[in-house]
Design a protein around this nucleic acid. Structure first.
Lengths: 224, 224
DNA sequence: TACCCCCGTGACAAAGCTGTGACAAATATT
DNA sequence: AATATTTGTCACAGCTTTGTCACGGGGGTA
């Protein structure tokens, strides 16, 4: 997830960037409107946090320009007291706003809310490989034969997601670990255990896997 | 769309009424708080524009009384300089405010913004899931078996609303918290407690929930 | 055959999550 | 001002999920 933070107050921009990075975003920054437009068109961020008051191009203008082209989620930063800005911003097409000063927690909540609304179209509600039907939203898999829904734990969920998205291909251990545990990683023991636990849940016979195939020295893949 | 305008300043009330009529509203008027409550309960307006300073019942009181019963969008009219009124008003449950003196254009923008926000959650007067019938307007649930109406507190109300609207789906903790407490959020302890309290009210056996299902690591959902 | 590496397996400990009850703080009601 | 209701805080118990470790087997290679 790439986020673009636009604010001429560099200190505040840093704070926001720090907050978002902690949430797992890759953060780009701009300190004025013109540069923001450039970054937006070049880097195609998934989210924009945009200050209203800026030299050169103000936030409204930037927001309007972007809206001429696409629907990238935009959160406006406005100043307390300028309530009209909020109305104007939302009319222009911003998705939400946060009034300065704000707590990091508040910003994160808004970001999540906005991405949720926008992102609903990002992930399909169901993915299917052969007899196996996976519902990320409910965190469960269903065997089409018996129709029984099996609940998954968060980690199992991310693993299956990773394999389903790339069904038919072999995913290396490193890639899988990155997807499941994030950049801070984990060791291979943990992945081995996780694969085992997922197999127990979805394979008819965990000792002779039909779905999760292991490729020695490389990684795992979902056989489609 | 019916709007109720409440202001003891008849001239101003007329101006507002004129503005709203031009926007296509059917406008009712009251010149004091008591009468306002009467009009509200009799005519069920879709929107209320409410002056804070009034003889007899002031705007805060009127707003509070209304909020005890339903969520009709309310815009407060406050005087410049009394910033505390704004905070107080929003805490009490008003949806927005306009500071006098204001331009008609400004009022219209606020009205539209508020209606847009409310409109997304615009609900039928009753929702039903299996044996459970929920009346958002009355803030109560009824078990169809015994027909007993159970009153809900404001928070329980918002929680059930959130679950009812998305019955059958699992709602994440974040989404629910956002819906119930708003962007400033709350911690998980509070949600856990709230779920518990709602369960005690609507589940025959709160320890073995039939309605509110918990999905570990994700959130809660209403089983439909 | 002996050695090495990789993987599956099982047992176990640590960490985290959820439900629960009791209680304090805030708020409304009288 | 006193009371009742609603909401927030905390600590605990039980369970689930996750991490750690050691063992053993298979398949290469000297």
């Amino acid at each position: 997830m790439k986020a673009l933070v636009v604010d001429d107050d560099r200190v505040l921009a840093d704070v926001i960037a720090f907050t978002l990075r902690r949430e797992g975003f890759e953060v780009l920054m701009s300190y004025d409107g013109e540069n923001a437009l450039k970054r937006w068109s070049e880097d195609q961020p998934d989210l924009i946090v945009l200050d209203v008051n800026m030299p050169k191009l103000d936030g409204f203008t930037v927001c309007r320009r972007i809206r001429e082209h696409d629907d990238t989620p935009i959160i406006l930063l406005t100043v307390r007291g300028e309530e009209d800005d909020i109305v104007k911003g939302l009319e222009i097409g911003a998705d939400d706003y946060v009034v300065k000063p704000f707590s990091p927690r508040q910003l994160v909540a808004r970001v999540n809310a906005v991405l949720r609304r926008a992102g609903s179209t990002l992930q399909p509600s169901e993915m299917q490989v052969r007899e196996l039907c996976y519902s990320p939203a409910k965190r469960e898999v269903t065997h089409l034969r018996d129709g029984k829904a099996i609940p998954l734990t968060p980690l199992e969920n991310r693993l299956l997601e990773c394999l389903m998205i790339n069904a038919g291909q072999v995913m290396t251990v490193d890639i899988i670990i990155d997807h499941v545990w994030g950049p801070d990683g984990a060791d291979r023991d943990m992945l081995r255990q996780l694969v085992r636990r997922l197999r127990i849940k979805i394979e008819p016979d965990p000792s002779n896997p039909e779905y999760i195939q292991t490729v020695p020295g490389l990684g795992y893949g979902l056989i489609s």
